[in-house]
Design a protein around this nucleic acid. Structure first.
Lengths: 114, 114
DNA sequence: CTGATACTTAACTTTATGGTTAAGTATGCC
DNA sequence: GGCATACTTAACCATAAAGTTAAGTATCAG
């Protein structure tokens, strides 16, 4: 039996499985840095609920938080998404033959491009 | 309202958040078609537990099941992964500038390549 | 010092997840 | 028919997830 130590992927995919959390990430993709209350404002749930979502995102390494005075600035940290994307990329050939050829192009070109 | 079509994404990411389910998908990526008991064999959990995982994968549209006689053939259906990957692709620029350029190349080239 | 602002923590409820064992159904084989 | 194989369903359990309200802490503005 093969034991996988990819708890990171578990956390990343689990964090992405909630629409509120994806919306939070989407906002941080556009805004670069937002406070907790700015992030919470558009959502119809309580602030503690948003806090919990931010904890989940933080545990998954998808955001970072930095306190300055009484406000907490949240920033996107997309790093873990790359791992998730790499996992998915193995399946690309099943939905697209042309993208499969392109994946090989990426692998070959990516090396010399670094 | 704006979004409720992303229940599909919810299910896809949630299905991918479990290591056993990812391992099941990985096996189906290599084997094309496997019966329930063949799929279950390598895992240290009971058959009903595997059944539940297959139900989750099925609900997410990531596998299809076809019964022939008393055996059930499971096949990968990667379609929903494409949606997940597209969602993630928006964040590529945060971890890789060169992959961002390549993403544009995909968009431009993908069209005429179809 | 006071009060408002910006979180944070605590306690609790409800529902979902991931597992179990045990029993049930359907098919294939002698 | 009778029995093994291949799932399937049922009932149950423990823990985690996602939300609530209420109360607590820390900082800035006056």
């Amino acid at each position: 039996m093969v034991k996988y130590a990819d708890a990171d992927l578990d956390r990343t995919f689990a964090a992405l499985a909630d629409p509120t959390r994806r919306a939070l990430l989407t906002r941080l993709e556009k805004e670069d840095s937002l406070s907790v209350s700015e992030l919470a404002r558009p959502f119809p749930v309580s602030l503690p609920a948003i806090m919990k979502h931010l904890d989940v995102l933080s545990d998954a390494g998808l955001i970072t938080r930095a306190k300055t005075g009484r406000t907490v600035a949240c920033r996107l940290n997309a790093g873990p998404m790359e791992e998730a994307m790499n996992w998915l990329a193995r399946y690309e050939r099943f939905w697209s033959a042309s993208l499969d050829r392109l994946a090989r192009f990426v692998e070959e070109t990516g090396e010399e491009d670094r």
